[in-house]
């Protein structure tokens, strides 16, 4: 919970600074775009958080985003009905996550390697099936495009991706904090051996986390593709796994596993997007983009580590004063 306040502080600071330096940041159009893309980032970041909480990592998120967006466009172009096309993309995404989970648990391969291979493979497949030609939806499929348009709610325009993200975030939050499976997920991340000794089916839980991650990547990829409407198979979704991992870590997930809150991850995603937006809107040359995002992220984790050490020192000092507890 403390970490959630921390990342919220960072978000408000960046928003305030940007708004003061350039009031255009608060313009309707800019706010809508920022909210929409913050939500799209959050969807894939929530998936990343599931895997990170188990103590694993998924580097293939960006490539799954790329593949699912490309594949959707390709299927629609070939005349596949919209519903079927979406179903195919989601089933494929889930299958990818299932494969990752099997390789990590049953084959005992390292998540980093498995999903790094995934990163290369799915990107490559996206380029092969399209012959590296850019894809798009044009102006067809208005009902599909409605998924990324704003809707009026109580007089305010709210982007639909935000509503979708909110639904996913609430469901994920309930799952993690209220269900037995969520408890197992945290327990697995804290101590896999003890989890097994407590009768938890650790393999099933791990596999589930990878499936959730890939599924949300696939779904995020569909929405992002609809939003950009012009998809370069070689680029679409590049680096998104790193944004997602960064957002999850900013939001309180530890790569050691066992920690994380969905609200924190959602706010972390917003930080990533607002930073990107600030660089554009403040007229900073976008060659600086990675430098700034990298520095903010580094500052965040260094601060977190310093706070953690300070707390540990204070605790040690307090315990030193008390007599040795026994019994």
């Amino acid at each position: 919970m403390k970490k959630t306040w921390g990342v919220l502080g960072i978000l408000l600071f960046v928003i305030a600074l940007t708004a003061i330096l350039n009031p255009r940041f608060l313009g309707d159009k800019n706010l809508l775009t920022t909210l929409r893309w913050s939500s799209l980032y959050a969807i894939i970041s929530i998936g990343a958080a599931f895997v990170i909480i188990t103590g694993g990592v998924d580097l293939s998120i960006g490539s799954v985003v790329g593949l699912s967006g490309t594949l959707l466009a390709l299927l629609l172009e070939k005349g596949t009905p919209v519903g079927l096309a979406i179903a195919i993309v989601l089933v494929l995404s889930a299958a990818i996550g299932f494969a990752h989970g099997l390789l990590v648990t049953k084959m005992r391969l390292q998540p980093f390697i498995v999903t790094l291979c995934g990163l290369l493979i799915y990107r490559g497949v996206a380029r092969v099936i399209t012959d590296d030609q850019s894809q798009g939806f044009g102006n067809s499929y208005p009902r599909l495009h409605a998924l990324v348009e704003p809707v009026g709610i109580l007089g305010a325009a709210i982007p639909v991706p935000f509503l979708i993200m909110a639904a996913i975030a609430i469901a994920a939050s309930i799952f993690l904090n209220r269900t037995v499976w969520g408890r197992y997920l945290f327990a697995l991340g804290r101590n896999e051996q003890a989890a097994r000794y407590s009768g938890i089916n650790t393999h099933a839980i791990s596999i589930m986390a990878y499936v959730v991650c890939a599924l949300l990547s696939g779904w995020g990829g569909i929405l992002m593709a609809l939003d950009v409407n012009s998809i370069q198979p070689a680029q679409f979704g590049n680096f998104y796994e790193l944004y997602a991992i960064a957002a999850a870590v900013l939001g309180g997930c530890s790569l050691r596993g066992g920690e994380g809150s969905i609200l924190g991850v959602v706010i972390g995603s917003a930080v990533m997007r607002v930073l990107y937006n600030a660089i554009n809107i403040l007229g900073i040359p976008n060659t600086w983009e990675f430098v700034i995002i990298g520095l903010v992220l580094l500052g965040g984790v260094v601060t977190d580590e310093l706070v953690r050490r300070w707390a540990a020192r204070r605790r040690a000092a307090r315990e030193a004063e008390e007599p040795l507890l026994k019994g």
């Binding site: 804290r190 101590n191 051996q193 003890a194 066992g258």
Partner: peptide
């Protein structure tokens, strides 16, 4: 290592 979740 096998019995507890120390941080829970």
């Amino acid at each position: 290592a096998q019995g507890l979740f120390l941080e829970m």
